[in-house]
Design a protein around this nucleic acid. Sequence first.
DNA 1: CAAGAAAACGTCACTCAGTGGCACATGCCT
DNA 2: AGGCATGTGCCACTGAGTGACGTTTTCTTG
Lengths: 231, 231
Amino acid sequence: MTTATATTPGPEGKELPLRERKRLRTRRALVEAALVRYARDGFEHTTLDDLTDDVEISKRTFFRYFASKEDVALAPEKEFWAAFLDVLREAELSGPVLGVLHRALVTALERMGEEWERRFAESRRLVERIPALAAHSLQHCAETSGDILELLSVRLGPLAADDGGPDGPGMDELRLRIALEITVAAFRCALHTWSTGPADAGRAELIALTGRAFAAVPGSLDLMARPAGHG
Amino acid sequence: MTTATATTPGPEGKELPLRERKRLRTRRALVEAALVRYARDGFEHTTLDDLTDDVEISKRTFFRYFASKEDVALAPEKEFWAAFLDVLREAELSGPVLGVLHRALVTALERMGEEWERRFAESRRLVERIPALAAHSLQHCAETSGDILELLSVRLGPLAADDGGPDGPGMDELRLRIALEITVAAFRCALHTWSTGPADAGRAELIALTGRAFAAVPGSLDLMARPAGHG
DNA sequence: CAAGAAAACGTCACTCAGTGGCACATGCCT
DNA sequence: AGGCATGTGCCACTGAGTGACGTTTTCTTG
């Protein structure tokens, strides 16, 4: 599934194998058609035949590209999480974990292509509207979280001594889990505001909103239901 | 949608309309059959006909009880979130929001029936294993989060002055969102540990694990990737 | 208790997502 | 040119989910 860039035999293989280019073109066309159709005609009222007619492929071929009708609309999101994982693999892991994760999010966002931004925005708007897409999005996000957790456990596990601290064993692993969940939660908050806001908001706004969400985290722990000194 | 708020006040032997009792009985039988089948034969290898044969109803009737094949296995979870919302409606909202939410979770857990516990444990084990169930679970959880947020905004919105504080407008609403997300995240962490642990762990263990997860939250913000003083 | 309203159920027919199998076409390598 | 691998189209099929309509069961009211 996670088909990264193909291994090019040459030194700087700009020219991808012609077969691959065709494949990518079909893939893009499918995503594009899906985003347009789902937004215009609605997700439920769009049949697979509509999509395959647009791109002129058979229904059977569709499922060689995407696992489901929902999957095709979440392609931009999957690309992003894959990029995020890549960043996390390369990045230097030092300092506060939450900061590391925040920086990795921003870096991944900045790495994405120009066209991706448009598709991603459209995809997110659909996810906000269509429960079936939201379900798949959340599921994929959770799955990725598992991968991230594994990655982080390996890369900074031996560094964080966690055998019988003042809070008992396994507490730091739990903290790592929570930190990751908070990261994802903050990002999703940012995404929500971003995709329900003005349509011309670019990734700069998303990065800013993400920063805002992260900034709100510490204060959220001390948030008071009833201001002190009130009955 | 959520019409089946079967309030069981006091003794269980409350004389409900005979029609309702039959309905509840069928519903329970369906959930039970689904949990058994999905666990024993696998989710994918269980057809709707298998379920409807067990309970001796028609396939058409099945969809008058549950919206999907996944839905039936998530009934215990839905019951819980409904209870949680009820608690939040009645509870006194004062003090730290995170504490309020934590207490509400525990209270809701304690309110559930005895039989519910068994079904819930089984349901969670299935959710951990089956992506399709995970997706629906997450989606419903997110949906409920929306309801909770609305509820909280109304009940403690006017109390928390949020017009142009030191961090700009809307910051406290953002903090509330994050606090809610953290709550759900902590609970899900507890659930994960609970359902992948020993099979005889009851709700007392779940409550303890929830407390542990909440306790890990503050430390997760300051978690360091590389301990200070290391190369 | 009879009779009608209301809710629930079953049957049939249908749409559509998703899969397996197999033949055919296309790009790739030597 | 050849063989090889991969991608594609077509066909038939399973299974989830829905709409329509007639029948049964339960609740209600006189």
